[in-house]
Design a protein around this nucleic acid. Structure first.
Lengths: 369, 369
DNA sequence: CTGTTAGCGCATTCAT
DNA sequence: ATGAATGCGCTAACAG
C-alpha cells in the first residue's frame, strides 16, 4: 500500500537502520548517504508511519484540546489558534468536546491517553481532579480558563477578578447604582472570580451588595433568560445588567427583545467575552474581553515548553493570568446621578486600547475590604 | 507505565494470544476464559494500546473532519454533531481547519493519511481533486457541503438551488422587484448553485436578471461589506438583499449599521445559514436554513457505512441532498407594488414574534421612548 | 559511520 | 480451545 522505510533502504542498498538514521536527521550518518537517502525517499514518496514510530517511541504527534463546546466564541478562537500553532510544529490537534460534563470529560480523557497523546490542553470541569492528576504523570497537561482545584497543574487563566471589576466599575462610573449580575456557577473558577470582581467594585464605590441583583447559574442561554426576567421583574429593577456568563448572553438578549426594552436607553448592557457580531449588533454591545486569543497562545507556549522539557518533573507548575480589557461600544449609557453630590463622578477612564493591568487582581488597586 | 496485554495474560496464566482473543471477543475462546480474562483485565486496569493495535491492523480509530473554519455556524454544529456521533461508536475525531486554502488542505490531507485515519469527512476546497481521489483508495471519504468536481466521491450537499430559490421567491412574493444577491465564489458548488436558484426564481417571476445586483466573492466578511456598499450606492438600489454567502453576513450588517439603514423598513434582509443569535437580533433575521445538523448526520451515516463495507469498491458512490427551509423572522417586509393595481400593499406582514423596534434609523442616540 | 539484533504491544497465522 | 511463532514499521542498543 505505501512505501516503507525498508523499501527506501533496499532502493539505496543500505540497512533500514541507516535509512532511519539518515532520514530522522540524527547526524549520525555521513553527509553523502544522508542526502542520498533523503533524495531516494522523496523519489519513492516515502512517508514515515507515525503509528509504527509511535509504538517505538511512545509518542503520537497528537495533542488534544478538550473544551466544553464550540458555541462559546472563546473556545472557537482557542481551537483555531491551537490548531494553527500546533500544526506549525508538526502536531495534529485532537479536538474534543466534553459538554462541561464530568462523565464525558472522564471518558474522553481516558480515550485520549489511550491514543498516547503527547500533550493536552483542557478546560476542566473541575470534577475529575484525581484523574487529571494521575494523567499528568504520563503526559504534559495545561489547564485553561478554569482551574481544577484538586490538582496542581499548570494553569492559564483569564484575569476574571480584574475583568469583572473593570466592567462593574465602568457601569458604576456611568452612574449606575443598581447593577444586575448574571454570572456562572459558583463551583467554577470564573464564576467565583467574576462575582468577586463585581463585589469589589461595588464595595469600592460604597455601594451595598444586593443579593437580589445577583444570579449565578449554569452556562446555558436559559440561565440568562430566567435571570434576566427576574431582574427586570424586581420592584426596583437594575439600571444596568452585567452578563458575566457568556453562554447566558443569548438568553438575556432574547428577553430584552421580547420585552422590547431599549438598550441602552432603558437598560445598560455589558457582556463578558467578545463575539464577532457584538460589534455589529444594534446597539453594538460593550464587553469585557477575556483575551481568548492570548490565552490560547500562552497555553500552547506552556504546553510546548513542558513537552520539550519532559522528564523534568512537574516542578515549574505555575499559574498564569492574561489581563482583561474593557471594550466600550454602545450598549451602556450614562445615567442621571439622582443622588447627593452633583459633581459628575470622574470622566470615564476609557482606556482606548490594550493595557495589561496588574494581574495580581486584588492587591493592586485599593486595599479595600 | 501502563498494563499491557502481556501483563493480563500472565496474571491469568494464559498466553497472550488467548488473552487477545478473549478480550477482542472473537468468540474463539471458551466462555469461561472469556469472562475470566475480561474480569482480570478490568481489575488490572488494562487498556488496549490503539497504537500497537493499529500497527497490526492498519486502523487507528481516528476519523478526521476537515473544515474551512470554526466561525461558520454550520461548521460548528457539524463538528459537534460529528464528534458526538463518532464517539458513540468508538472513534475519536480529528478536527482540522483548512482555511479554504488549497495548500493547507493538501498538507493536512497527507498528514491525516500518515496518521492512518479510518475515515474522512471533508469540505473540499475543490483544488485538490487529484489528491483526494488518490486518498480515496486507501480510506473512506465523504465530501460535505461542496463537491470536488475532479473526483467522484460520495458527497452530501445542501440543496442550495432549492434554498436560494425559496429565499428569492419569498422576497419576490413580498413585492421586491430588485433583489440584491451577495453570493460565494463561483468556483464552488454552493456559489454556483445559489446563484442559479436566485436566477430561476427571478426568471419564473418574469423579472429580468440585473447583473449589477449580483456580487460573488470570497467567503469573508469583507466581501459582504464591499458588495453591500456597491449595492446601496447603485442609482437604483435594491429593496432587498439576499446574503447567500454566510461568511459575508457580518460585513453586510456592518454596513447597514454604519449607514444607519433600517431593516426591514428601508431594506429587507435575508441571510443564508442560521446562527443562534440571528433570532435575537433586532430585527430577528430571516434565513434560509441549510440543515447543517442533518447534513452532518447524513455524512456520518454515509461514512460509517462505507467504513463498514470496506473492500467493497467505490461503487455505491452517490450524491445526497438535504433540503433547505425558509425561516421567516422579521427582517423582510412586504413592499408596495408600485405598479398597476392600486390596492394598498397590505400592512407589513410582521410576524407575531417580537416587537418592532423604533424603526427609523436614528435609534442609537436621540431622544428615546 | 554502518549493519545486526531486538523489541514496542498487539492480532493472527500455524500448529497442537 | 489454546500456545507458539511471526511480523506490522520503525528506532535504538549493540557491535563492528
Amino acid at each position: 500500500m505505501s512505501v516503507t522505510l525498508k523499501d527506501v533502504a533496499q532502493a539505496a542498498r543500505v540497512s533500514v537502520s541507516t535509512a532511519s538514521r539518515a532520514l530522522t536527521g540524527t547526524g549520525l550518518t555521513s553527509e553523502r548517504t544522508q542526502q542520498r537517502l533523503t533524495r531516494i525517499a522523496r523519489e519513492l514518496g516515502y512517508r514515515p508511519n507515525p503509528i509504527a514510530r509511535g509504538l517505538k517511541t511512545g509518542q503520537s504527534r497528537l495533542v488534544a484540546l478538550l473544551v466544553h463546546n464550540l458555541t462559546n466564541a472563546s473556545f472557537q478562537v482557542m481551537a483555531e489558534v491551537m490548531q494553527a500553532r500546533l500544526k506549525a510544529v508538526g502536531y495534529q490537534m485532537l479536538l474534543c468536546i466534553g459538554g462541561d460534563d464530568a462523565q464525558q470529560e472522564s471518558d474522553t480523557l481516558t480515550a485520549l491517553v489511550d491514543h498516547r497523546i503527547d500533550g493536552l490542553i483542557v478546560v476542566p470541569t473541575g470534577k475529575n481532579g484525581a484523574q487529571l492528576k494521575a494523567l499528568a504523570k504520563d503526559v504534559p497537561i495545561v489547564c485553561l480558563v478554569r482551574r481544577d482545584d484538586a490538582t496542581d497543574l499548570e494553569t492559564v487563566l483569564a484575569d476574571d477578578p480584574q475583568g469583572a471589576y473593570l466592567g462593574t466599575r465602568h457601569l458604576i462610573e456611568l452612574g449606575h447604582k443598581r447593577v444586575g449580575l448574571i454570572v456562572g456557577r459558583q463551583d467554577t473558577t470564573s464564576g467565583r472570580e467574576r462575582l468577586s470582581g463585581y463585589v469589589r467594585a461595588l464595595r469600592e464605590a460604597g455601594i451595598p451588595v444586593d443579593d437580589t441583583l445577583i444570579h449565578a447559574g449554569h452556562f446555558v442561554p436559559e440561565t440568562g433568560a430566567t435571570s434576566c426576567r427576574k431582574l427586570l421583574d424586581l420592584p426596583r429593577p437594575p439600571s444596568a445588567i452585567f452578563v458575566a456568563n457568556h453562554e447566558a448572553t443569548l438568553g438575556v438578549l432574547r428577553v430584552i427583545a421580547e420585552r422590547n426594552i431599549a438598550v441602552p436607553d432603558d437598560l445598560s448592557l455589558l457582556c463578558y467575552e467578545d463575539m464577532p457580531w457584538f460589534e455589529w449588533h444594534r446597539p453594538a454591545i460593550s464587553i469585557v474581553d477575556n483575551g481568548a486569543r492570548d490565552l490560547a497562545n500562552l497555553a500552547v507556549d506552556r504546553l510546548l515548553q513542558r513537552m520539550d522539557a519532559k522528564g523534568t518533573g512537574n516542578d515549574g507548575v505555575r499559574e498564569y493570568r492574561v489581563g482583561a480589557r474593557l471594550v466600550q461600544r454602545d450598549s451602556c449609557r450614562r445615567i442621571e446621578v439622582a443622588s447627593t453630590r452633583a459633581g459628575k463622578p470622574k470622566p470615564s477612564i476609557a482606556k482606548p486600547s490594550a493595557a495589561k493591568s496588574p494581574s495580581k487582581s486584588s492587591a493592586a488597586k485599593s486595599a479595600k475590604v
